[in-house]
Design a protein around this nucleic acid. Structure first.
Length: 606
RNA sequence: GCGCUCGUAGCUCAGUUGGAUAGAGCACAGGUUUCCUAAACCUGGGGCCGCAGGUUCGAAUCCUGCCGGGCGCACCA
């Protein structure tokens, strides 16, 4: 028995009562069952609209007839009452029996089964995400991509796909030259011994600003600035050529500094609990990209235009020419993307290829996929771009010129400090430093990941550090974690009083006593749990983690209400204790598992 | 100009195969601790779902047009 099987059980009873003309089998009926708007109305509602046409009857009439048919069944193990309410048939279950199908599997460590016929199951999927540039800063904006990609990896794995989590690091290109130029032109003294990746990013920003200033001043007539700008550009070309030619003077410096960034990324991923199966580097597809241009120019797929090489894609009307080699003979981002795609297809036999990249690149990926198709890669059909909107700050977009970029380390430290000052300081006498640090880490992750994932992909996110670390409750990661901690704490307290969940109840062999779990708050919580597997399936199928986040929040909210209204431990009736312990245990398992799919740890105490 | 995207409560947002009286959080006003974590719970006020048409038993949801914000459109990544 799986925790998502309750609807199926109900459908088994209901389906035979529906006239055959409607053409609904058990699965179809189960799929139609929805939660009623209020828990008091029942555990499930069956909408009769779909049957109206086939049965040539009005939905309210069908609902009434079905209610009568269920009443005629007489005593029934699962459905207590069936009440027609307009076009809906509301089904109220014997709660203790429903619990045996719903709560016991959760409590017993079972997980929902997802249909193997779904589009996303039994497939080998590559998800490319994160893709930071070396020699540049890693900031809150990068966190959205990281959280989203990681969550999709977890969701697709949970729903039956084999996933290759891939990263694609930007270790070559003009930004590297800018940074290395800045290093020699603007920096005096030795690099720091700590956090050198971050420092490199700051050098890059400084260089970018300086170059922009010279460029602007030059254009405004400042000849000295113009000369400096030209000289710097020439120097950057030299640096790039030196790296490419493997001139030790440049190549070694590049490798050394590149490693500083890579080390930093490693630390960030470790802190975030993110792991990659395969890391690609731009530097490894640079040359293959250019070779590929020659190859497909010779084949006539690509064409020359104004000294550059590209492909005509008139299908994309507003940007019909897709450039793949500049007139100076060098490649572009797009060139490397084609070579990378080919590498992915050849190295892994993937059935689906997902690119998590911000929404501004959507035209770019239309071009890439269309071009791949014209190059003869049928796998282009399997490629999809998952776009998402930007992360902004309360005072607008992040910019190094404005100096309002929040780098990863600052994010981690400020969030931690803020959470400690707001909340965790009260544990200083009670907990060890290590315990507090662990909790701070967990709750920081909850705040960041939930904040990044609870909003739809195509909504902008405003990152306001003060708000994100102000855990006054409400709709946030900490609320979900708090509920996990409350369930854990309650179960420990129960155990200390000698109250443990009966093994037979937990396994579902035995139902709890009739009449238990009928309080409104108990029903509400059960309904939130009923809806969880569907939310996971929908989130995975549509690649939108926010759907899962809102259902997890609904579970947390329902639990808080339950714990407020239904005392678990201070009960005279041991059967009530059993029923409620089952509910708490199931909630804990469901919620912590759901959180794990979002990449958020579930603390035992907080 | 072309394309993508957003527009729902004072603010931030859910609402996706069209379905019950459009929901949360924050903010605001009130209430709840001899009792399992008050980071909680309850109650209340608050809405021409951007505008106008259309499709039908039924539209925040689908179609068309318009208005307003954001983003993208050849040698950057």
């Amino acid at each position: 028995m799986r925790p998502d099987a309750l609807a199926q059980e109900v459908a088994k009873l209901l389906a035979p009562l529906i006239p055959e003309a409607a053409g609904l089998d058990v699965d179809a009926v189960a799929a139609l069952l929805t939660p009623p708007p209020k828990p008091e109305l029942g555990h499930f509602a069956f909408p009769c609209f779909r049957l109206a046409k086939a049965l040539r009857s009005a939905p309210p009439k069908i609902a009434a007839e079905l209610a009568a048919a269920i009443a005629a069944l007489g005593d029934n193990p699962l459905i207590a009452t069936a009440t027609p309410a307009g076009p809906y048939l509301n089904l109220d279950l014997h709660a203790h029996e429903a619990a045996r199908h719903l709560l016991a599997p959760w409590a017993n460590g079972q997980r929902p089964a997802f249909p193997s016929s779904g589009p996303s199951s039994n497939q080998k999927v590559m998800i490319e995400y994160s893709q930071p540039n070396t020699h540049k800063g890693f900031h809150v904006g990068h966190m959205r991509n990281l959280c989203l990609g990681d969550c999709l990896v977890r969701l697709l794995r949970a729903t039956g796909s084999e996933v290759v989590a891939a990263n694609y690091l930007g270790d070559v290109g003009t930004h590297v030259a800018k940074c290395l130029w800045g290093l020699e032109a603007l920096v005096s003294g030795d690099p720091p011994t700590q956090a050198r990746g971050e420092w490199l990013g700051q050098v890059y920003s400084q260089a970018a600003i300086q170059l922009e200033d010279w460029d602007e001043a030059g254009k405004a007539g400042d000849e000295a600035a113009a000369a400096q700008y030209t000289a710097a550009r020439e120097r950057m070309s030299e640096i790039l050529r030196g790296i490419e030619a493997r001139d030790p003077a440049y190549h070694d410096l590049w490798m050394r500094t590149r490693q500083w960034s890579l080390d930093e990324f490693e630390q960030i991923y470790a802190w975030c609990g993110v792991e990659f199966d395969r890391v690609f580097y731009e530097s490894e597809v640079d040359e293959p990209g250019l070779k590929l241009v020659d190859e497909f120019l010779a084949k006539g797929v690509f064409v020359e235009s104004r000294g550059a090489v590209g492909i005509e894609n008139p299908e994309i009307e507003h940007m019909p020419f897709f450039m793949l080699r500049k007139s100076d003979g060098t490649g572009l981002y797009a060139t490397k993307d084609l070579a990378l795609a080919r590498m992915k297809f050849e190295e892994f036999g993937i059935d689906r290829s997902i690119y998590v990249v911000d929404a501004r690149q959507s035209d770019h990926f239309k071009q890439v996929f269309l071009t791949l198709k014209k190059m003869g890669f049928d796998q282009a059909e399997l490629c999809e771009h998952v776009g998402y909107e930007m992360v902004e700050l309360p005072d607008g977009a992040m910019s190094s010129r404005k100096g309002n970029v929040i780098l990863f380390r600052a994010l981690r430290e400020q969030l931690g400090a803020s959470l400690e000052a707001n909340y965790f300081h009260k544990f200083t006498d009670e907990w060890t430093r290590e315990q507090i640090d662990t909790a701070l880490h967990q709750v920081s992750l909850g705040a960041i990941k939930y904040g990044m994932l609870a909003r739809d992909n195509n909504q902008k996110i405003v990152f306001d550090l003060a708000k994100w670390s102000d855990v006054q409750g409400g709709d946030g990661g900490a609320t979900l974690q708090y509920v996990c901690a409350r369930t854990a704490s309650l179960l420990v307290k129960a155990q200390n009083r000698g109250m443990t969940l009966d093994g037979a109840v937990r396994s579902g062999e035995r139902a709890t006593q009739a009449g238990t779990l009928t309080e409104v708050a108990e029903r509400g919580l059960m309904q939130a749990l009923i809806a969880l597997p569907g939310s996971i399936a929908q989130a995975a199928q549509s690649l939108r983690p926010s759907i899962l986040c809102s259902q997890l929040y609904a579970v947390a909210k329902a639990y808080n209400r339950f714990q407020q209204e239904c005392n678990v431990i201070h009960q005279d009736d041991p059967e009530v204790v059993q029923a409620r312990l089952l509910l708490v245990q199931a909630t804990r398992e469901a919620l912590s598992w759901g959180l794990s799919l979002v990449g958020i740890p579930a603390p035992d105490r907080m």
